[in-house]
Amino acid sequence: MIYNLQIFGAYFAQFLKTRMSYRTDFFVSLVANILVGATGLLFVVFLMDGKNITELNGWSRAEVLFIYGYAMISMAIFSSVAINLYGFGNRYIIQGQFDRVLLRPLNSLAQVLFESFNLDSIGSLLVGLATMLYAARILGISIGMLDVGWLFVSSISGAVILISVFVVLSSVSFHFEDRIGIAPPFYNLISFGRYPITIFNRVIQFILSWVIPFAFVAFYPATHFFNRTGFELLCYLTPLVALVSVVVAWVFWQFGVSKYESTGN
């Protein structure tokens, strides 16, 4: 474990060194990332202007914003490592870089995830946090130490769920050689996880809870802070769902690796 952390630290240090040598680039990306976070948020703000439209099927504007901000936090953590999954099919399979990964005495998935990072996502993490705090004030939510602990555990769990889903999708690249792979379209699917799940119909609710568990990324854990009943069990199931997702992802990944053909050049 200590060994793994040391290696992780070394990878991160190397990454920082290269990243910092392109400083303007970093700031441009950071601004771009804040814009990405802000535009998503603006959609909700414009949609529910607070005058004509004050609620979304029973969810108040502040609640919707709170969930949205919550989702942004998990997603920012996710996207800080997911950058490698995004281009996995092209970079690792088609260009054959996965050979190098397999030649190291380290876990292959951990190497892919931690080979580079997307630090820009700190931008949307801050936007998300600010949104959440703003909404909490309107809702009159007081946040104690335990709540902070839950926010920490659940947002990490949320990120883990997202990573797991995309590991499963990326491992499809082992079977079908395709420059793009099937994962990118699904990045857009994350949108479902940013809204109160009850606005969707039953089939979608079921899928978001038990097939592609994006509802656990923000919605269920966020209900911890609301004065509502009906979600207590699902809310605290979040860490367990994350754990199960990891196991499923690992099985898919291992199966994919066994089918790796290393034809790239």
Partner: peptide
């Protein structure tokens, strides 16, 4: 045994 094994081998691919 990939992880244990690769600790004991050296590999050079000329192309990459």
């Amino acid at each position: 045994d990939r992880r244990a094994y690769t600790a004991h081998i050296g590999v050079v691919f000329g192309q990459r």
